[in-house]
Amino acid sequence: MIDVLIIGGGIAGIETACSLQDLGYETVIVEKERTIGGHLNNWDTLFPTHRPASEVLEYYTEETRKRALTIYLNTYVTSIIKLDDGTFEVNTSRDVIFHSKTVVIASGYSLFNAERKEEYGYKIYDNVLTSADLEKKLKTLNGEFKTPTDKVPEKIAFIHCVGSRDEKSGNHYCSKLCCVTAVKQAIHMKQICPQADIFCCYMDLRMYGPGFEEMYREAQEKYHIQFIRGRLSEVGENADGTLQLKVEDTLAARPSKIKVDMLVLMVGMESPQSTALFKETCGLQCAPNRFIQPNDHHIGSNKTNIDGLFTAGTSIGPMSIFDTINHAKASAITIKNYLSRN
C-alpha cells in the first residue's frame, strides 16, 4: 500500500512528491508523457522575470534524481476507485494497479484549441500562431526571428482572451495568466525584433500578481507596445500572407483595421479531458468551468468532495507557476494531516 499516489508529473506533482518526502511519506508519480515537467518543457521564458523556463525545469529534474522519486512515465490513469476501507484503487494504461491511502490529482491543464475559434484563422492562415506555438518557436530560435512565411515581422499583434471569457468557446471564465504572458511575449518580441510595431488587443488587463503591473508599465514606457482595448472579431488574409484584423478600438469608439505580419493568439487554460474521466469513475465534483471543485474555496482548496482525494496545481483552475508550487506544498501538508489522523 502506497501512502500517496500522485497523478501528473508536472511541477505540481513533483513539488507535492518532494514536500511529502520531506514529511516522511512514500509517493508514486504517474505521468502520461515520456518526461516530467509537463507544459514547462515547451516554454521558453517565464514572467515576470523573463527567466528561462529550463532553470525551473532543471531544478525539479535534479530534485527528482537526488530524491530518487518513483515515477511511472508513459502511463496514464484510466480510473480511480475508492474502496470501502477508504483506500484507493487506481487503474492505469499499463496493467499496473496501484493501491494507495490517498491520491493527488496534479493533472494540470490543457490549452484551448484555437481552431475552435475559426474566425481567427488558426491553421487556416499561415501567420497565425498560438502563444504556445510562439514559445516553442522562441525556444528553438536560431538566428533572426521570422514569421511562418519567412518574413522578418514589422507588425505583430497579440490577441488576449482566446477561448477565455467566451461563452461561444464554452469557456466563460478568465484564464488569468494570458494577460501577463502576452505582455511578456510582446516585450520579448520587441527585444528580438526592435523594428516591429507590436499591438496587444485586450478586453481587460488583469495584472494581478507581484511584478505584473510593473511589466505592463515597462511594456508601455520602454517598449512602446500599443494596447488597444477591443476584442478581435475577424481576420482576413491578404495575397502576400499578411493578415487584416478587425477590432473596434472601444476607447476611441471606432472600428479599426490593423494589418500585421504575424498574429499571436493567447490561448487559455482548459480542464484536461482526464478530469472528466475522474469525475465519471469516482464521482469527483467539478465546478461549472469543468475544473475540479475544491471542497472549500478558502480553507480547503486542496481537498475535493471525496475524502482522501486531493488536488495540487492547475487541476482546480488556472494558476501561475509560483501559485502552483505553493498549492503543491499546501497539498503535502493537507495530506500529512489526513494520513496522521487516519
Binding site: E118, E119, G121, I124, E234, V235, G236, E237
Partner: peptide
C-alpha cells in the same frame, strides 16, 4: 461565410 475563413478559403 466571412466568419468561417476556412470555408471561404
Amino acid at each position: 461565410t466571412h466568419m468561417t475563413p476556412g470555408i471561404k478559403k
